[in-house]
Design a protein around this nucleic acid. Structure first.
Lengths: 158, 158
DNA sequence: GATGAAAGTTACTCAAG
DNA sequence: CTTGAGTAACTTTCATC
């Protein structure tokens, strides 16, 4: 995972359908060299899979919310994990602090969110939920390949 | 945006590099028909762009956190918006409730998160931050194309 | 690492039903 | 919408430097 690999990942994160010829000249490698590195990045698992960024509004899910879920105990957490079956749910994390789970959920409207929350409460063990409604999103992207300072280093010769 | 379109999006979200032949037989269309629909989905903006799902650990960012940021006022929000320059930052939302902004940030370790928070406090107007450290992630995916109930409907004839 | 080349596959478009 | 066909482009690998 050197600078070339990070440049390749950064380029493909922006547009995964770039040809190896274009990719190569963007990162300063020949097409075969770029291809070999992408292959290794896939085999190593650094690239999990290719996917699409979808416009939430166009698929009828303009309302985004983050829901914190508190439990009485951890016994029923298995059943609650099945909420990944809901296509409205995009993320499920367990978090440190005063809450148990943090769920990112995207619905058609407030009523659909209410129905989802009702499903949550059907699980015994769920004590309270606290929802944060998103008013507007300024940035939303996947994991970036570079870290702070990477670009400055890249500008140096050598 | 009919059932075919949602099936196409769902398939490409799982694997965007599928050939139109495979895509067609997965959704029940001929390759040219599948191709034409994908083209329209791009032109309509429903598909924003193709991207890669990256393994955060493999790129050196195993620590995920959600940070709520409170302001004194909205005057300096423009400057604070520049935090999208940080590759650690994946999402920036303004949320209703007792906080102003919600930031999803992924760093190498707790120290790197601390450095990022220090950058936030450099902005005048930032009053407090409240961070939720993610202990484990059970689900993390992009916006799904279907809504609850879609699959049941699809199983019906006609 | 670069180049050049080869074979196989796919993208993309169109005509016709 | 389907089938069938066609060209251009790309992927993928390999031999060579």
């Amino acid at each position: 995972m050197d600078t070339f690999d990070r440049k390749i990942l950064s380029a493909l994160i922006e547009d995964a359908e770039m040809s190896y010829e274009v990719l190569g000249q963007r990162v300063g490698l020949s097409p075969p060299a770029a291809h070999a590195r992408v292959k290794k990045l896939r085999e190593s698992g650094a690239i999990e899979h290719s996917t699409l960024k979808i416009d939430p509004v166009k698929v009828g899910k303009p309302l985004l919310a983050f829901v914190f879920v508190d439990f009485a105990g951890w016994g029923k957490s298995r059943k609650l994990m099945q909420i990944d079956q809901f296509p409205e749910v995009e993320e499920i994390h367990s978090v440190a602090g005063d809450s148990g789970l943090l769920i990112k959920v995207r619905t058609r409207d407030a009523h659909a969110l209410e129905l989802f929350l009702a499903k949550l409460y059907e699980n015994s063990g769920v004590q309270t939920t606290k929802s944060y409604i998103v008013l507007s999103t300024f940035l939303e992207r996947g994991t970036q390949a570079n870290a702070t300072g990477d670009w400055e280093v890249d500008l140096l010769p050598g």
